[in-house]
Write a protein that binds this DNA or RNA. Sequence first.
DNA 1: ACAAGCAACTCCTCTAGTCGAGTAGACGCC
DNA 2: GGCGTCTACTCGACTAGAGGAGTTGCTTGT
Lengths: 262, 262
Amino acid sequence: MVEPLNLPDLDSASDRAVFRQVADHLRDAIDRGQLGQGDKVPSEAQLMQHYGVARMTIRNALQVLQSEGLTVAEHGRGVFVRSHPPVRRLASDRFARRHRDQGKAAFIAETEGAGGKPTVDSIEIAELSPSPAIAERLGLTTDDRVAVRARRYLINGQPVETATSYVPAEIARGTRIMEPDSGPGGIYARIEEQGYRLDRFVEEVKSRMPLRSEARALKLAPGVPVFHLVRTAYATDGTPVEVCDTVMSSDAYVLSYELPAR
Amino acid sequence: MVEPLNLPDLDSASDRAVFRQVADHLRDAIDRGQLGQGDKVPSEAQLMQHYGVARMTIRNALQVLQSEGLTVAEHGRGVFVRSHPPVRRLASDRFARRHRDQGKAAFIAETEGAGGKPTVDSIEIAELSPSPAIAERLGLTTDDRVAVRARRYLINGQPVETATSYVPAEIARGTRIMEPDSGPGGIYARIEEQGYRLDRFVEEVKSRMPLRSEARALKLAPGVPVFHLVRTAYATDGTPVEVCDTVMSSDAYVLSYELPAR
DNA sequence: ACAAGCAACTCCTCTAGTCGAGTAGACGCC
DNA sequence: GGCGTCTACTCGACTAGAGGAGTTGCTTGT
């Protein structure tokens, strides 16, 4: 036994369920740094022995921690304290023209600025009729047509975000918006070239647990919620010109917004 | 048997775990509306019989749904499809002076506007030294003093949000900021009366699973993440005058922000 | 008519095992 | 050295029970 199980005993006087007490002990150890990121949690067998309880009880305790996003189990290896990816801070001026004028899309510029290696992945482009929600935001009907651009963003090979943009087909047709490489400055630059001057974005933020498909696409650990952003871009005349639907791993991001007091 | 268990059989050819298949069937039934909000999910015993599997297998399946936030178990009564509270939309102009000038605090004005009955609860007020994070945001040191105002907001008796404000003691002392009823227009009005004109707020948004204490205070169902906002208020001269730390049930809110394209 | 009591039904916690499959290190063979 | 095999250890899935506690509704006695 290399590893001293520095855990308290059960409090048999307490009416707190045994598996919760075990979970509490381990959570404390993680909070106090006694178990650091990436460290191996004692195995089920060790914990069974230490506490003198059945395996299912220990598994319940570990399940609690896992669903809190504190640990990850790896089949055949053990249970480990989850390590958190570096946090990216998204500022509310990230779509400001002065950034776009550098000729780089927002994501690329940001990531390189932070010293990461950005990649864009599995780009899918189509032209089809919008869902009612998208149609409403773009001021269209479900009989109109929109260009759809779906892609996944990665940093150092790790997926962090999926995004789907919807642009009225009127605007997108014949531009590089319909091509995998949308050109310098990204699709916002292309939209402005079509004679629309971007004025403002409205971003709606929700938080929820991921769907199964999202958890797969973003390689999310269990117990990690996602941010779901729906951003609508408006031209100076008030016309909506793009809707972008984004799902992001919530533990990789802090969103930052500036609100006026005026 | 009043209730026909309209669920498929197991696919024994599939290598998908049995408890996951059961969870999939129930999730489908919920998604398709076959089981609506508040409906009772078949009992563990019924599901055991239907699928011909052990109790723990069924419980695992139900655990999956619960941790996805789709169901709630009630001891002695059954498992029910979760019903979602009405969603509140927080606009980015919610702290604009024109709203404050009505003489109401942001929360009260908003909630009444949406036809709900707002309450504020368990107000705690103290003067103490700030944590390093708060001190940094306020441009103070941990030896300085701040006024702390913690409260919980409810709508129709249902808790939706806890908030803690930190104001430099220099500003707060001798004002109604230190009293349970901070007066018309709330603490922002009091701060402006002290000669600081509010200019802008910077709001940082995180999403994560709640701590145990937060889940209790907000009466959160399992599997529901929280928004964690930290908002700093700046006066026109750039001085930070308040930090507000807010935890909100994520399924009760959509945050909406306006971003400049300029 | 009413209340008390009881039974049935619900989920909660826990025990004690089996079999399976992935991982990693030790070992021996080539 | 390089390669495969063996084995011990890990978690994953599942079975088959036990007693407990909260809820609901029926039965029964007054």
